[in-house]
Design a protein around this nucleic acid. Structure first.
Lengths: 192, 192
DNA sequence: AAAGTCATGTAAAGCGTTACATGATTAT
DNA sequence: ATAATCATGTAACGCTTTACATGACTTT
């Protein structure tokens, strides 16, 4: 599939940048739907250069801090465009260890279950707050009214990440409520 | 992380089964949060047998159809239990090619954007219907009222998969509406 | 008879993470 | 001076997919 290839082409198409810049974008803005470590980015940049999809110039010249600024080529732009135009079938659903553990919930006591769900809930709520904070910053600093602008892309994917967390939190709360109720009934039943 | 290891241990802990059975569970019930191809399952079963976490007996004996029925060992049960008790930090968010393409939305015309979103929406709606159908079957055929039962695990993860699809669909609909509105305004603006 | 499912495996390649490795620049 | 950040790369390992491979049983 080579998705990393197209992710890099797309970012360099937006704006010429270094491998280090790419790394920051992957691990900040894009982290909610795509990411890569620098150890994957640098070899991919080399590969894309070999394939003549991108080129680079070293700046500042002669000096010691060798910084490679990558730009997209016409060939690269075309391949990126073909990729984004192509309509894909649904991907397999993402793997989720917490859900896997939830599937095996019968192996735990109600107290342990509640522990697990509360721990996950706290983490998810913290994440949601961060995302909502990012959204506030985006709305305050950028104009997202034009659909044909990079800012609109930033906006809609951030919106989807927020929805995703809210949905997860809703599920966790419902599970906690059900298990709590069951626990209470169970306790009541033991009373004569 | 060896999550496949624990997924297999968990399933064999529920009930002794063959590699083929595991494959079917992974690609049917568990497919919404964990899965594996048979080419990954068989080597893992071999590894788990070497580690003495599972054992197998061949049935029917002497006959040609060699069928290995795997059972969990006490050691396997312990390792599984340790795994499920352990509280994990949030995993990195799952990768999503459609969201990645959405991030690069500026590269497409409004008509193409709507095309993409509608195509995705149709697929997600079909998937949601399948999940809701599965839920109906589950509720009709099993008693999910006992938390300490495998059926309850089936139920809560199916519920989360349904929520996930609904949330995705909601997002797609909002995007479609925004882009449609924008398109209309754009068209209106071009009228004198 | 043919097609589909049951049943089990291996090999090669691709993707991704962790660890190893180096050195310059900037902020405290 | 020291720590943090900028900047670039490689090596080893682990996980996952695709393709190769075989054969029995069951349904049409």
């Amino acid at each position: 599939m080579r998705t990393l290839k197209y992710a890099i082409l797309g970012l360099i198409n937006r704006e010429s940048m270094t491998g280090y810049d790419l790394m920051k974008v992957f691990n900040m803005e894009l982290v909610n739907f795509w990411y890569a470590k620098h150890s994957q980015i640098y070899p991919e940049l080399k590969k894309l250069t070999d394939e003549k999809l991108i080129t680079y110039e070293i700046l500042p010249e002669d000096e010691k801090l060798r910084k490679k600024i990558y730009s997209i080529t016409e060939k690269g732009r075309q391949e990126f465009h073909n990729w984004i135009l192509q309509q894909d079938l649904l991907e397999p659903t993402p793997k989720d260890i917490f859900r896997l553990k939830a599937y095996f919930i019968e192996s735990l006591s109600n107290a342990k279950i509640l522990n697990h769900f509360h721990y996950q809930l706290t983490q998810r709520q913290e994440k949601l707050e961060k995302l909502q904070n990012n959204m506030q910053i985006l709305l305050d600093s950028k104009d997202i009214s034009k659909i044909q602008s990079p800012e609109y892309g930033d906006y809609i994917v951030l919106k989807s990440a927020i929805k995703r967390e809210k949905s997860y939190i809703e599920w966790l709360n419902e599970c906690i409520e059900e298990v709590t109720t069951n626990t209470r009934i169970f306790v009541d039943e033991r009373r004569p």
